[in-house]
Simulated assay, not measured.
Amino acid sequence: MHSLLKRQIRKYLPNDLESNPEMDKFLEAIEKSYENYDDKFSMLHRASTISSDELFDANKKLQKEAEQQKNILNSLENAIRSLTDNLNEEQLFGQNIQDEFNAEHLAGYISNLASQFSQMTVEKDKLLISLENQNESLNNYAQMVSHDLKSPIRNINALMSWIIQDEKDKFSDTSKENCSLISQNLSKMDKLISGILSHATLGETEEFKVSFNLKDSLKDIERTIYVPDNIIFEYPKELPQMVFEKSRLEQLFMNLFTNAITATENVKKGIIKIGYEPDEVYWKFSVSDNGKGIAVKHQKGIFEMFKKLETTNNATGIGLAIVKKIAVLYEGDVWLESEENVGTTFFITLKKNS
Rank of each mutant, 00 (worst) to 15 (best):
T201Y: 07
L181F: 01
Q299M: 00
N135C: 04
F257W: 10
K191M: 00
V287Y: 12
M1Y: 11
F93P: 15
I97Q: 09
N15K: 12
A47I: 08
G319D: 03
N230D: 00
Q68R: 11
K25N: 10
I326D: 02
S130F: 09
D229F: 10
Y141W: 07
A142N: 15
I182F: 15
G94A: 00
K292V: 01
F208P: 13
P278K: 01
E67N: 07
N255V: 06
D125H: 08
R81C: 02
F101H: 02
K150F: 05
E22R: 15
L202V: 01
A200D: 04
D38W: 12
C179D: 13
N157P: 04
K273Q: 10
I225V: 05
G94F: 02
S137P: 14
S115Q: 11
F285D: 05
I80W: 13
Y330H: 15
L149H: 10
I163F: 14
I232P: 15
L239D: 05
R154A: 05
T345S: 14
E31W: 12
R81F: 05
K324L: 09
G108N: 15
N133E: 09
L249V: 03
N86A: 09
P228R: 01
T84Y: 12
N213V: 06
M43W: 14
D85Y: 07
V296G: 09
A263M: 05
E339Q: 10
I272G: 14
F56P: 08
N353M: 06
A66I: 03
V243Y: 15
F346K: 09
L256H: 14
L106T: 01
D85R: 07
S51L: 08
L192I: 00
N135A: 03
G203H: 02
S82R: 10
K25I: 01
D229I: 04
K351R: 08
R7I: 00
C179E: 13
K292F: 07
L13A: 03
P14R: 02
I80E: 04
Q68V: 06
S42K: 12
V328W: 09
A47G: 09
L44S: 08
E280G: 15
G319A: 03
K297L: 07
S51Q: 11
F93D: 13
D39M: 07
T121A: 02
N78D: 12
L252K: 14
Q143T: 00
K215Y: 14
I153N: 08
L106C: 03
E340S: 10
I271P: 12
I272H: 11
K273W: 13
A263T: 03
F26S: 07
L83M: 02
F171A: 00
L192Y: 03
